[in-house]
């Protein structure tokens, strides 16, 4: 479904990704793990069209998307739920969700999608008329995910969905991701919460200093000594 081949990318003169190759199949849950600064976020931003790859190719459903601007990538069905939520703070929750369905394709089905989002996040329905900026971190993350769903994505990219959340909320977030996966959406997820992600992922990639150093099934990586050392020095 999504294929990155020898992709290099960075900001200005600084190259962050050095020729990484990643594949995500239809219906899979794939994760990228790696230390801070390894280039995980850059990978997702490059797929989403926010960062231009300097080398290599990115194809989605057979179409080359490496040169497309971000808003056209969204239209094709790839949605990034960014690190730190990035809600529109002075808009109501309802407006945030409507913005999620901005593309013509998603706008036509906005009402149905909204009902689906409410079924996943009953709490969000209660907060519809509040400003997004006034919600708690956990609620904001729920809105961010719901907003991402509003775009009717085929491929959802999650960037650190558990960042800055209390453990109990993290658990809820991952349960939600499970439910989303169950509806047939393909997921690529980047997380520092290694255990959670690897345990729900079909496959994982280990990214170190902008290079893929290892790839295996989620379960195998979870037992891997190298992964454990890289994460806690044990």
């Amino acid at each position: 479904m999504l294929r990155l081949e020898r992709v290099s990318a960075g900001y200005g003169r600084v190259t962050i990704l050095h020729g990484i190759s990643i594949e995500v199949g239809q219906g899979e849950v794939v994760t990228i793990v790696g230390a801070n600064g390894a280039g995980k976020t850059t990978t997702l931003r490059t797929i989403a069209g926010l960062v231009r790859p300097t080398e290599g190719s990115i194809t989605f459903e057979g179409k080359d998307i490496g040169r497309l601007p971000a808003h056209e990538v969204v239209d094709l069905g790839i949605t990034l739920i960014p690190e730190g939520r990035q809600l529109f703070p002075y808009m109501t929750v309802r407006e945030n969700l409507l913005m999620g369905a901005y593309t013509p394709r998603a706008r036509a089905e906005a009402d149905q999608t909204l009902q689906f989002a409410f079924s996943l996040f009953p709490r969000v329905k209660e907060k519809l008329d509040q400003h997004a900026g006034s919600l708690s971190g956990g609620e904001q993350q729920m809105v961010a995910i719901a907003r991402g769903l509003m775009a009717k994505p085929k491929l959802l990219l999650f960037d650190e969905p558990s960042l800055g959340l209390a453990p109990i909320i993290v658990k809820q977030v991952f349960e939600t991701i499970d439910k989303i996966v169950a509806t047939g959406v393909t997921v690529l997820i980047v997380e520092q919460n290694v255990f959670h992600t690897l345990s729900i992922a079909d496959r994982g990639y280990v990214l170190e200093n902008g290079e893929i150093t290892m790839t295996d099934t989620g379960a195998a990586l979870l037992k891997n000594d190298h992964v454990r050392r890289a994460y806690l020095g044990i």
């Binding site: 919460n193 290694v194 255990f195 959670h196 994460y231 806690l232």
Partner: peptide, 10 residues
């Protein structure tokens, strides 16, 4: 760092 479950898994 890793989440509660990792403690048990480890």
């Amino acid at each position: 760092y890793l989440g509660e479950e990792f403690v048990h898994a480890a």
